[in-house]
């Protein structure tokens, strides 16, 4: 992992560094930042398409070494989130399948039967709501008449 250059401002108790958006997607940066908000002030700037500027400011007074260590921790957490995002993305369909299969098989059988029945019973197929049985010529003659009426 790269170690981006950083700028330390002791007076402001702050360390600032830049991350290339191609290597570090915004989702990972936001997730990592979220983990830190209970103990440091985090501010983001920049362009998610190019480069993000991360500013970490201690809630307690920190020296230079501690600010550098904070940056190190942030980068470690970023690495964690890169891994988590990849793992989640790659296993998304499997997880969706497992959850869906678990929940469906948990439903009472009368509920499953009812939901499949309700789809069937919406319309009596013999009424031919989609006009499947209507011949092409008849259907188009109907449509032409309707169009004439509209234009009048």
């Amino acid at each position: 992992m790269q170690n981006p250059k950083s700028k330390i401002n002791i007076k402001e108790n702050q360390i600032v560094f830049r991350l290339n958006s191609k290597n570090y997607p915004l989702e990972a940066i936001l997730n990592a930042a979220y983990v830190f908000i209970d103990r440091v002030y985090v501010h983001l700037d920049g362009d998610p398409e190019k480069e993000i500027l991360i500013s970490l400011k201690g809630k307690e007074r920190l020296d230079k070494k501690q600010l550098e260590a904070l940056k190190g921790e942030f980068l470690n957490e970023l690495l964690n989130y890169l891994l988590r995002i990849e793992v989640a993305k790659n296993n998304q369909k499997i997880r969706e399948y497992i959850v869906a299969a678990s929940l469906v098989s948990s439903l009472p059988s009368n509920v499953i039967a009812q939901s499949s029945r309700s789809e069937e019973e919406t319309v009596d197929w013999r009424e031919d709501p989609l006009e499947i049985a209507v011949p092409w010529e008849e259907k188009h003659a109907k449509k032409a008449k309707e169009k004439q009426k509209k234009n009048k």
Binding site: L30, N31, A33, Y34, I37, Y41, V42, H43, L44
Partner: peptide, 11 residues
């Protein structure tokens, strides 16, 4: 603190 709060809501 306000900045952190917004970040928390954003996330």
């Amino acid at each position: 603190e306000f900045g952190n709060y917004v970040l928390g809501l954003r996330k």
